[in-house]
Simulated scan of single mutants.
Amino acid sequence: MPTTPSTLDRTTAAERRRALVRTTRDVADDLAADALARDQAGRPPTDEVARLREAGLLAALTPPTPERGTDWRTGCAVIRGVASADSSVGEVLARHYVHAWSGRFHASRQHADALEEESVRAQWLWTGAFRGIAPDDDTDGQDLTLRPRDNGHVLNGCRFVDTAVAVADQIVVDARCAATGDVLTVLIPPGARGVTVEPAHDRLGQRVAGAGEVILDRVTIPPGQVLGRRPDDVESTAPFTALAEPALRLALCHVGLGIVEGALSEARDLSRGGRAYRLPGADPDLFLTYGELATAAQTATAVVDRATETMAQALDTGGRLDDEEAAGVSALVATAETVTSKAALHITARVLELAGAPGLDRFWRNARVLTAHHPAAHRLRSIGEHYLNGSHRAVAATFH
């Protein structure tokens, strides 16, 4: 049978996926070897990002085209694999991947293509922080302000960023224009004058993620760094653009699953090696406990995988996505996040009772920090409203 261009594209994509899986495994093994020491040191992820860049993961985890990038399903698998070895680095990679989609979510296709091409060429590391689309009763207002000037805008204010604040090449934020009232999505130029970074020290968990505050004092934002205008309300937001926030939440679910897999794997190895508090030969109830924990992990994985498949289909649909489809994706992601958060906190706490080896506590600490800012009750109410009324507004507001 003759080989067609589409066949070549599929073959090339399949080869890229296989190579990426192998690379992910190698990177995870490398990170696992010194994960505890790096967690204890708690330094910004300069060396870790260098490892990701050298392995080609920063260039690979960008939106897919026939020639480059990674599809959503594979990207999430890479994030989970890295997170199982070091969840801080997994979170860096998760936020990098989702924020690398910013052009597609917020800008024109031509602008997005140019950004993605440059991102791959220069192996940019992306991060960002959005206030998101707030409910009507949110009166906090924007913490970043843009003022127009002849050659673009000037940006002032401060914003907490969860990963790579001192080492990222692009920081994506939303800010309100003081002149028009519009909320614009902008890129903060790397190394721009007026940008100051204050790293967060002595965090409970995710210590190597590189969290911190970015302080912006009259930072010039050229026109090319403005991706687009974002409406203030859910009803006016394009369905595809509305996927940006649940996509990030779902990528972080894969980080949570990585934490679960890492904790269970390490506890199992300790039990098998006779270095745990409770050993299989002396405690038959240990099988029951591990059965419970493995079941909880598999349940969370099944829910997250379903949400991942649904998100992948929605991203493939692109501009043809409608409001109801976007609402369904958001509700499913909220469900995945609820189940994963509960499983991660439960499993990482339980393994401490089974195998109290030094460093095993880092899994619980990391899970606690990853899930701390997203209360389950708010998500469950939104899921319930969507189930009963089909309302997409409440679900979307969950992700601000």
Rank of each mutant, 00 (worst) to 15 (best):
Q225A: 14
A134K: 09
V98S: 08
N366S: 10
A251G: 04
A13R: 15
D150S: 14
P375N: 13
C158K: 14
V21R: 11
V173S: 06
A14S: 14
A344T: 00
R278E: 10
S119L: 01
H386V: 02
H96E: 05
A307D: 07
P66E: 13
V255Y: 11
G181T: 08
I215M: 05
T24F: 01
N156L: 06
A94W: 05
D140E: 14
G90M: 05
V183M: 07
Y97K: 11
D361I: 03
D232H: 11
L58R: 05
H254N: 10
D361T: 02
E353C: 12
S102Q: 06
L286D: 01
A282L: 13
V173Y: 04
L354G: 00
L52C: 02
T241R: 10
T289M: 14
R38P: 09
L286T: 04
R53K: 13
G262P: 08
E48M: 08
P284Q: 09
D323Q: 15
L321C: 04
C76H: 13
T180W: 03
A164N: 09
A164L: 04
V329I: 08
A343T: 13
G384F: 10
V172A: 11
C253D: 12
E353L: 14
C253L: 10
A59R: 10
V165Q: 01
G390H: 04
D138R: 00
E385A: 15
A294R: 00
V208P: 03
W72C: 09
D174Q: 10
W126K: 00
H201A: 15
R53W: 09
D283N: 09
A242M: 12
Q313M: 15
T340Q: 00
T46E: 14
V165M: 07
P135V: 01
N389T: 11
A355L: 08
R17A: 13
R203W: 10
L332N: 01
T65K: 03
I133T: 01
V195S: 10
E261D: 15
L243T: 05
R278T: 12
E309P: 04
P223K: 00
E54W: 06
D232L: 11
V339N: 02
V351T: 06
G281R: 12
Y97G: 06
H111A: 06
H400D: 14
T65Y: 06
L360G: 02
E91R: 15
A55V: 13
P246C: 06
V161S: 01
A314V: 00
G262V: 10
A334I: 03
E261W: 04
G256N: 05
P246N: 01
E325N: 12
G90Y: 05
L61S: 01
H254S: 08
A200D: 09
V186E: 02
V154T: 15
T308N: 11
V395W: 01
A327F: 02
R149D: 12
A300H: 02
V214G: 03
F240N: 06
D217W: 03
R10Y: 09
W126Y: 15
P239K: 00
R38C: 12
H153L: 10
G81L: 02
H378N: 11
R379P: 01
V255R: 04
H400C: 14
G262M: 07
T12K: 11
A238L: 09
L279V: 08
F363Q: 02
